[in-house]
Each structure stands twice: as structure tokens, then as C-alpha cells.
């Protein structure tokens, strides 16, 4: 059953990506709407695939790397759709869909390992993990948006205006979309971290010690994005510099995420 949902998700996402790319080149409203509709369908089947996987392992779907990556892809799609609807701008879909697909593919092509039982359960813990992954998805989206900004800005400067540039969102809209995304990330990482502390507090006797290097890393990520948020509104940084900073922040997030989770953290292996 799970395989059926995985195949349906891949099909929906692939078709949606194709339509988003076509929309970017042709600008046909109907194509864009179909792309969004297929993405919604993909989200539905992706959710069911996650649900099936969780039921099969009797634990949350993100307890292993496979599940965490799949959930990341799903939350990235959710965040993107919210931003698309809020800003009424679909051309970005062609750039975000490949990222979602890559995460979904890797998550499902990885060899399945036997599931270890989760040390911690409960709603608070589940919310902590979900919100943390949502924050990283939002930061990933802001990175994609900033890269589009930098690309479009460069093309405008060197006056190379092909078919696509006329359809991309205006630079200032891309900036606003990126800010929205970072704002979502900041709020969710704050709430998610707070819930994490509550979960630790409840399980302290059984599994956790209070200190984990991951806390420092999370604080670091928070600071990075608060600095971005602040600088992006200043005279010296607004525009391309802020976008570069946003991309730089995300690269740091990915590197640190990797290093901290794999080598230092005891309790945060995959999120």
C-alpha cells in the first residue's frame, strides 16, 4: 500500500514540476493552476505515504533519516504552497519542485533499515520535531528564493532577458517572499525549540541530559536568521547583499546540521 502512495506521489510531483516549468516558459494560467492542483494531490499522497510508514513502524515517520528527509520534502511543499497562495506567484514552483522531488526520491530510494523504537513519544515531542523540520524547510525555501533573486538580478544587470526573466517575480516581491519564508522559519524554530525543552523536561529521568550541542547550534541558526532579518532592511544590505547572506546562512545551516547531528548530538540524529 505504501508503495502505491510513493508511486502516486512521484507521479504527481513529476507532473507538477513539468507543468510548473511549462508555466514558466509559456505563462499559461491554466497550466499554472494544474501544476498547483497536482502539487496539492502530491501533498495528499505524500502525507498518506508518511502515515503508512509511521503505522508500519509504530513510531513517528521522522525517527530515521529516511522519514526525516521525506517529512522535510513534504513540509517544504506545504511552506511553498502557502507562500505561493499568499503572494499569488507560481513561477517559483519550477525551482522549488526539483528540491522537493530530490528529497522525496532520496528518502524512498535509501535502503530501509530496521526501525529502532523512539525513545520519546507524545504530542509535544512530535510537534517539536515537526516544527523544527518545518523551520528548516522554510529556510530552504528562502534560500531558493534568494538564489532566484540573485539570478534574476544578474540577468537584469547584464541585460540578458530571455523568455524566463519576463515571467519571474519582480525582485522586490522575491525579497518579500524570502522574508515571509524566513519569518515562518524563525517562528517555528522558536516554538519547536521551546517544545523540545518541554519534552526533555518530561523525559529527563529516563533518557535525556539537559545539555546537547544541538542547542548551541539551534541558537546559532536563530541568530543567523535574526541578523539576516535585521540587515535585509538596512540601507547597506537590502537587495542582492541580503539575498547572498540568506544563501550563506542556509549553507551554514546544512553544514552545521550535518556535523552537529552526526558527530556531536546524542539525541538529534536526523532533525
Amino acid at each position: 500500500m505504501n508503495h502505491t502512495f510513493v508511486i502516486l506521489t512521484v507521479l504527481a510531483y513529476l507532473l507538477s514540476m513539468g507543468l510548473y516549468v511549462q508555466f514558466l516558459y509559456t505563462g499559461k494560467e491554466l497550466t499554472g493552476r494544474l501544476a498547483t492542483l497536482l502539487m496539492f494531490l502530491g501533498l495528499g499522497t505524500h502525507y498518506l505515504a508518511l502515515l503508512m510508514s509511521a503505522r508500519a513502524s509504530h513510531t513517528v515517520p521522522y525517527h530515521d533519516l529516511q522519514g526525516a528527509m521525506s517529512l522535510f520534502g513534504w513540509l517544504l511543499a506545504v511552506t511553498y504552497l502557502c507562500v505561493e497562495i499568499y503572494h499569488r506567484q507560481r513561477t517559483v514552483g519550477a525551482f522549488v519542485m526539483p528540491v522537493i522531488l530530490i528529497f522525496f526520491f532520496i528518502a524512498n530510494l535509501m535502503p530501509t533499515r530496521p526501525h529502532a523504537t523512539a525513545p520519546v513519544h507524545g504530542v509535544v515531542f512530535a510537534l517539536h520535531v515537526t516544527l523544527s523540520i518545518l523551520a528548516y524547510a522554510a529556510f530552504a525555501l528562502s534560500c531558493v528564493l534568494s538564489l532566484i533573486y540573485l539570478g534574476e538580478e544578474r540577468l537584469l544587470r547584464i541585460r540578458r532577458l530571455g523568455d524566463v526573466v519576463w515571467r519571474l517575480p519582480p525582485l522586490e516581491l522575491l525579497e518579500r517572499m524570502s522574508h515571509t519564508s524566513v519569518m515562518v522559519g524563525l517562528v517555528t524554530i522558536l516554538v519547536g525549540t521551546s517544545l523540545g525543552f518541554i519534552a526533555v523536561d518530561r523525559n529527563i529521568a529516563e533518557h535525556y541530559s539537559y545539555f546537547d550541542p544541538k542547542y548551541i547550534f539551534t541558537l546559532f541558526v536563530l541568530l543567523l536568521y535574526i541578523v539576516y532579518f535585521r540587515l535585509a532592511r538596512t540601507a547597506a544590505w537590502r537587495g542582492a547583499r541580503a539575498s547572498k547572506l540568506c544563501v550563506f546562512n542556509f549553507v551554514l545551516v546544512v553544514v552545521n546540521f550535518w556535523v552537529v547531528n552526526l558527530f556531536f548530538s546524542q539525541h538529534h540524529r536526523y532533525f
Binding site: 499559461k28 537584469l156 526573466v165 519582480p170
Partner: peptide, 25 residues
């Protein structure tokens, strides 16, 4: 609606305005 025939500006003034819209919306 279905072709690109009318989408791109053909005059210098309108091309300039379209470019300004690429930046400001």
C-alpha cells in the same frame, strides 16, 4: 492568451516600464 505575440514590449518606453516592473512589481 495562447502565444507570446503580445507579451513582450515593442517600444523603447514600454520596454523600459516593463523592466521597471521586473524590479518593483
Amino acid at each position: 492568451a495562447e502565444t507570446e505575440l503580445g507579451t513582450r514590449p515593442m517600444g523603447v518606453a514600454s520596454a523600459g516600464m516593463k523592466l521597471a516592473e521586473r524590479i518593483f512589481g
